[in-house]
Amino acid sequence: MFPHRHDSGHSANPLSDEQAEAQVVDAAKQISQLVSLPDVYGGFAFQSCNDQGVPPYRGAVEMSFRLPLDDRKGYPAEVDPDAFFDQIAATMVAHGWADGPPPGLHPNGRVINSNGVMAIMSWGPSPGWSRIQLYGECRNLTDHRGDGKTSWKKITDQLHKG
């Protein structure tokens, strides 16, 4: 499954740059704040939904966070990432997200989705850390080739706001 192929046929109701960004950034903020992700940082970029790099585009967020520590063993140890992903999914499902990917998609990792946003949880980017990648709908028709908006910009401060 290539996540960039998500929802590529829905350009009939296009999203502005601001709407496409808000779609995934708001979802990332919701996850970060409801779960209280430790040491979270993240970035946003527009991604083309095809192999040619042309419209349509979608918003994408990548958040990385430190795994919490588990004191139950009598010493600080990292929580099992898969168990923590299950806790994140359960929290988000309790707040209206759906468990699993949107219909017809089969990405690798633990997946939840809501309102056109798919969140994929996976291990990495380094030991003790995990990530959540969020992909919005392919409904932004602005041609972002050469405008710098396909480069990642930091959104860490937004992930910490309550």
Rank of each mutant, 00 (worst) to 15 (best):
Y57K: 00
Q33G: 08
S151E: 10
K161L: 07
Q30W: 03
M63A: 15
S151I: 09
T150V: 13
L37Q: 01
L34A: 11
I88A: 01
L67G: 12
D82N: 14
P38L: 05
H4V: 06
Q19M: 12
P76M: 11
N108M: 08
S36Y: 03
G128E: 10
F65D: 02
A12N: 06
E137F: 01
K29L: 03
A12M: 06
R110W: 11
D7I: 01
S114K: 14
N115D: 12
F2P: 11
Q52V: 05
D17Y: 09
G74Q: 11
S36G: 08
P68Q: 12
G59E: 00
V24W: 00
S36D: 08
S114E: 07
R139N: 11
G146Y: 02
E62P: 02
K153G: 10
D17K: 12
G146Q: 06
I132Q: 05
G100K: 03
K153F: 12
A12L: 01
A77S: 15
L37I: 07
P127C: 07
L141S: 04
I155N: 01
G124V: 04
G74A: 14
D82V: 09
A60W: 08
L67P: 09
P3K: 00
Y41R: 15
G146K: 11
N108L: 10
N50G: 06
S16D: 00
I31F: 04
F46Y: 15
L15W: 00
Q133R: 09
G53P: 06
R72M: 01
V111W: 04
I132D: 01
Y41V: 13
G42A: 07
G104E: 11
H95W: 07
S122E: 12
A12E: 06
D99R: 13
D7H: 06
P76Q: 12
D70C: 01
H95D: 15
Q30H: 02
V61Q: 03
Q23K: 09
H10W: 00
G100W: 00
H160Q: 15
F85H: 13
F84Y: 15
S36M: 09
G9L: 15
M92S: 03
E78S: 14
F85T: 06
P101K: 07
G146M: 02
Q47A: 06
M63G: 08
M121L: 15
A119Y: 02
A77N: 08
M63Q: 15
G136N: 01
F65R: 07
P68A: 11
R66S: 15
G136I: 00
S130E: 12
S32A: 13
S114G: 07
F2I: 05
D70F: 01
R72N: 14
S16A: 03
P101N: 10
H160F: 11
G53R: 03
H6C: 07
G53C: 09
E62W: 07
K153P: 03
D17W: 09
D143K: 05
D26M: 13
W97D: 02
D17S: 11
L141I: 10
H6G: 03
D99A: 11
N113T: 08
